[in-house]
Design a protein around this nucleic acid. Structure first.
Lengths: 125, 125, 125, 125
DNA sequence: GTGGTCTAGACCACG
DNA sequence: GTGGTCTAGACCACC
């Protein structure tokens, strides 16, 4: 389900947050689905339960999970996190655009990169 | 020349690297220009010389500076770093696009964000 | 009669206490009225009978219910809990006022908040 | 500086957060003042450093502190937290008002409680 | 069994 | 010396 990269400089709990967030965003973990328990996921990843606990706490704070004490952690429904996520990505996109523009990358080059991701849609839409 | 933000979570040396890289990319620091000495820049920013030393080392590794022992640090000529930088940014851009597409952000929305950065250029260029 | 919020951080029994207390305070549950049995309410809410038992015990301790062993739980008459409740709320109110004053919130602002709750009563009453 | 109440059911870190927040709000801890280090405060309170760490992290997230890794924790300037705090208190105030109104506490009684806190200001302001 | 908190002790990057 | 992370192991309330 998750593979940790111990060569990565980022803390483990952050890697776990990232991977799980991706799984939730891409729909692999469905709304209201029960997540593996703190202890079981810790065992599976050979990591201390506290570390998973911290990751789950972060995900809850970011709105991707909700916790019922004594029962487990569950995946939040999509519309509760979608708005925030979209806003964050657009911000990142704008900042990246600024850097690219400064380097002299033309609007045309950007459009080509986009067309590679959104095939079939003509440019004169 | 450089203003540090001590509340930034990133380490100081990384901020210095970032700022200097920006100054080089935007052309404020010209090719083959002599950089301020480690000690003088450390004094100017009120930080430990080790911190500046580390930043310079990082910039040299990234190809933005070259060192002449006993003489100082100099700015690399543009064509030596431009290709790598551009490639890195395009890769980042493509990965970000993939995430945005997954979230359901339309091609149209992207074009609007781009138009905000590249004003004056019509969409049917 | 009662709707539980499983995403609420508070324990279930505490939510039950709160909801029942509200129903008693607002008069929906009249004095000396018989409460539903522990088991039946537990069934209705799909929770463990222990949870309801604990809630009833708490309500009894707070003076809102009295128990007749072998018969069931009954709502206390109003005058037995009203005094204590009022005193507790006023204490809470005073403490909150102190905090607000410390933050520089003016008397005028407080009056406006009150007017929003007690509409129709003029300020010079 | 801080006294813990071990009979309190709330977690220790939460008590620490509460006390420190109060000290900051009331001005006892001035802007940009250096807080005691994690380890020293832990020693002073006879508590594990992790516990203090968690409290500081919470306070940072709430905007009362900012952290410079390797240097220490510092008190945020007032205007960075004042708005959020005021909003939170007003919300609490409104909710409390609703409860009091339900219990039949009159507007007049509230005004008297307020006058006790804001002496000298006449009612017909 | 579940999540939440806490202790004791360790290592790391940073300055 | 500072904050940040992690482990190992423990206890608690809740259900």
């Amino acid at each position: 389900m998750i593979v940790l990269d111990y060569r990565d400089k980022r803390p483990i709990y952050e890697q776990v947050v990232d991977k799980l967030e991706n799984l939730i965003v891409c729909g692999a973990l469905e709304s209201n689905m029960k997540m593996p328990s703190v202890r079981s996921l810790a065992m599976e990843l050979s990591v201390n339960p506290n570390t998973i606990q911290r990751a789950y706490a972060q995900l809850e704070q970011d709105g991707y999970l909700y916790t019922i004490v004594g029962r487990g952690n569950y995946v939040t429904s999509e519309n509760e996190w979608k708005g925030g996520k979209k806003k964050a990505l657009c911000k990142e996109f704008t900042e990246l655009l600024a850097k690219m523009k400064e380097l002299g990358i033309s609007r045309q080059e950007l459009l080509e990169l986009i067309s590679a991701q959104y095939p079939g849609e003509e440019e004169n839409v």
